[in-house]
Design a protein around this nucleic acid. Structure first.
Lengths: 195, 195
DNA sequence: TTTTAACTTTAGCAATCGCTCAAAATCAAC
DNA sequence: GTTGATTTTGAGCGATTGCTAAAGTTAAAA
């Protein structure tokens, strides 16, 4: 007893996510979004409530996709560390040119939303905490597998990984340093094993 | 035979810098700026040309201040590494609560301006390159002083430092992890010496 | 076929944006 | 005190912002 929704929510969110990731929340206008996702204001606002609502869903989808990507690499490698390394290399080297930004969308979000009580700031914190917990699980596996010694806890390894990964992505945001990526990722994983 | 300028350019730029650093370029309105620097539109635009002009000057001033801060710590310590460490601890621990953002304004800028041909994007790249060159000089000193071995070049040390520093600042942007700062900075400088 | 509920389109609103400019205010030189 | 160059002020412009609400469209239910 109705008309049917003409858009596929998943692919729309993914398109919005790309634009938000590239330009940031404030620099992306609702007109930009309309064009990118090919929807008119009325449809957008009935589906997502607000620009903030669409961004919120985009950011959540981004972290899910990132996790799914890691899972994919893990299932193709023998060890956790090999999987993580394949993931890191994929993000920083292989998909660099087709990615909306070199910098993690979560990190961008956390950096953009300064007001400590804002919804999107809280969201970015929660998603980051969630992702850290996920990474911690992975490093627990790595320790149990004997890939890493237990001089550091899984959480400490996860923290170290995040710092390195974020730092590297930030550095490779600038152009003309691509050839440095491989050795610096090599160094990163050497350090993890030697900690 | 004229009226004199009533504002001190230096302190005005510093105030604008603080606001831009906190909120980012796009989220800072010219009305916000008017209030923060206590100037009316006409004065602002005759002095700085545009919002972009004021931001540009703010970002340049930020990097100069950062260098000056490092110089300050270097003159109070015996070695380059001690100076850098004092600087890092000051930024991440001591001045955390009074800083407009945990994240370096240059990094924020580089992350915010996505369009590759935009003036402010180019500016952020230039300032970052300039800062890397400055850091490289410092690490050259450190190597010459025998503080570091020369298995890595000064430039490579500088890169490593930037990755670590940016990564750490990003991580400590989230609340409730303050007690981790000291040991993680400790670890960072241990790694630098052991590279 | 008609009704009806759900979705899409579209014009456009109120607010805010970056910015301008004519008038008022200011101060050094005379 | 008067002059005149210069700066400051503040009303407000045109453009754009996020968003709304009414009209139009569609398809399932009656």
């Amino acid at each position: 007893m109705a008309n049917k929704i003409k858009f596929e929510r998943e692919s729309v969110v993914r398109l919005a996510s790309q634009l938000f990731w590239q330009k940031g929340f404030h620099a992306t206008s609702t007109r930009d979004l309309q064009e990118a996702i090919n929807m008119r204001p009325g449809s957008i606002y009935s589906a997502f409530g607000s620009k903030e609502g669409l961004y919120s869903e985009s950011l959540k989808d981004y972290t899910l996709q990132m996790k799914a990507q890691i899972e994919g690499f893990l299932s193709n490698t023998d060890t956790v560390l090999e999987g993580l390394r394949a993931f890191v290399e994929n993000v920083i080297i292989e998909t660099k040119d087709c990615s909306p930004s070199a910098i993690c969308m979560l990190v961008k979000a956390n950096s953009e939303f300064a007001e400590k009580d804002a919804n999107l700031y809280e969201l970015s914190l929660n998603l980051a905490a969630q992702f850290e917990a996920y990474l911690t699980q992975l490093f627990e596996q790595a320790i149990n597998n004997g890939e890493l010694n237990s001089t550091m806890t899984a959480l400490e390894y996860a923290r170290f990984f995040q710092v390195q990964f974020t730092g590297l992505r930030g550095y490779f945001n600038r152009p003309g340093v691509t050839q440095l990526a491989q050795p610096m990722i090599e160094q990163m994983f050497l350090l993890i094993k030697k900690l």
